[in-house]
Simulated assay, not measured.
Amino acid sequence: MHLRHPRHRRATAAAVAALALSAGIPAATATAHAEAGSAVGRPGDVVSSAPSAFHPLPGQPTNTKAWKVHYRSTTADGAPNVVSGTVIVPQDGRTGPRPLITYAVGTVGMGDSCAPSNNLPYGTAMEANLIQQFTLRGWAVVVTDYEGLGTPGVHTYTVGPSAGHAVLDAARAATRLPEAGLGADTPVGIMGYSQGGQASSWAAELQGSYAPELKVKGTATGGVPADLMKVADFNNGSYGSGLIFMAAAGQDAAFPELKLDSYLNPAGKALVAGMKESCVAIDAIAGSFKRISDLTTRDPLAQPDWQARLNQSRLGRTAPAAPVYQYHALADELIPYAVGRQLRSEWCAKGADVQFDTIWLGEHVSGVITHSLEVGNWMADRFAGRAPHPNC
């Protein structure tokens, strides 16, 4: 989604106008804000906002207020875009500053219906119970939808720089939303696992140069797909092979010159087309146990242009400015443990403050659940100003 093109600005404006109508906001006003937000202003500026809700389970009450926001951000190649997300603030009587978590969800799918902002109000978001652990601590949370998920265009799944921008700009948007009661001095924590691990790690690497004004106290990141070429090779023909084709579609969305369609055979074209409209449960089943050669006429990942773009999303080149808590399951069946360890080694070699924990029991999906208390406690220590315990 490259909003420098007028047709994309019109599409975004139409989407925001539709949101505004549902919230009782004049469509003309929302459209004008969307047009202005896509062309001028700063990354993180709020283009539009509307009241929303946060429910961990259907009908389960929470003592929070929530808003759906559209905010300015930046694509992987530096063009301005507009991303949606949800700001959640506990209503606990607390006055004065409170911490903010900018939360990057794991893989939900590529269809717009999968976007967190479309599920958090109804208790159908997969990581809502994890998010509630943070609101119960009195922390505000902002959850990005990522580029193209819930907004016009195809979701740029696994495109690291785009995701990192979206996570950082979500934090900026939350601090600039007057109703949220936050501000420029708000202490910020970055969190995410799996796809969210890639996004949060990219946010950690980019923060010093892209959003240095954010008061980031630490990043908790897990199950990180730090090297997409190695992850693709690991999953080719296995249970997680559908993720390869989702990632290819996401890279192609960000970089249309890759021409993914020209590599796909009829079965591959049908699979990818379905993935763009579906959520992860369907995508994972439809794409599992397939080899790249089953769905292509030639392997795009063997081509220099594809390799260059995937390498552009590889982590480990820049040391995060704030401390990092990184965790990975030894028996991770989707993201090789060695990929996580390599990221830790590269960050440590560059002088980063990294605490790495191995999840000895469990696998990829369970890791984010079983380690959630450790993650929350580590971040609470960062907000409290306690010294971290790196183990490089």
Rank of each mutant, 00 (worst) to 15 (best):
D185Y: 06
D169S: 03
P320Q: 04
S345K: 11
V46M: 07
Y146P: 11
A322C: 08
G340C: 07
Y210G: 01
T29W: 10
S262P: 04
R7C: 05
L315P: 09
H5A: 13
A11S: 12
L57M: 03
G78V: 10
C348D: 03
L334S: 11
K269Q: 12
G268W: 02
R94I: 12
V141W: 01
N119S: 11
Y146Q: 04
L310A: 03
E147R: 00
V105G: 12
A338E: 15
A349G: 09
R341T: 06
G222A: 06
P178S: 00
G183P: 12
I25G: 05
T151F: 10
N265K: 05
E363K: 10
R172H: 03
Y103L: 13
A273V: 08
G250H: 07
E213I: 01
P187K: 14
Y103P: 14
M110A: 06
S113T: 12
S38H: 01
L130D: 12
N391R: 15
P266F: 07
A128I: 06
L310N: 01
A79R: 00
T370S: 15
Q251F: 14
A286S: 15
A267Q: 07
L100W: 09
D77F: 08
L310F: 04
C279L: 09
L258T: 05
R137V: 15
S209I: 04
Y103Q: 15
A180T: 05
Y122G: 10
P304C: 09
W347G: 03
S52L: 13
V339G: 03
S278I: 02
V82I: 10
G268V: 04
G268Q: 09
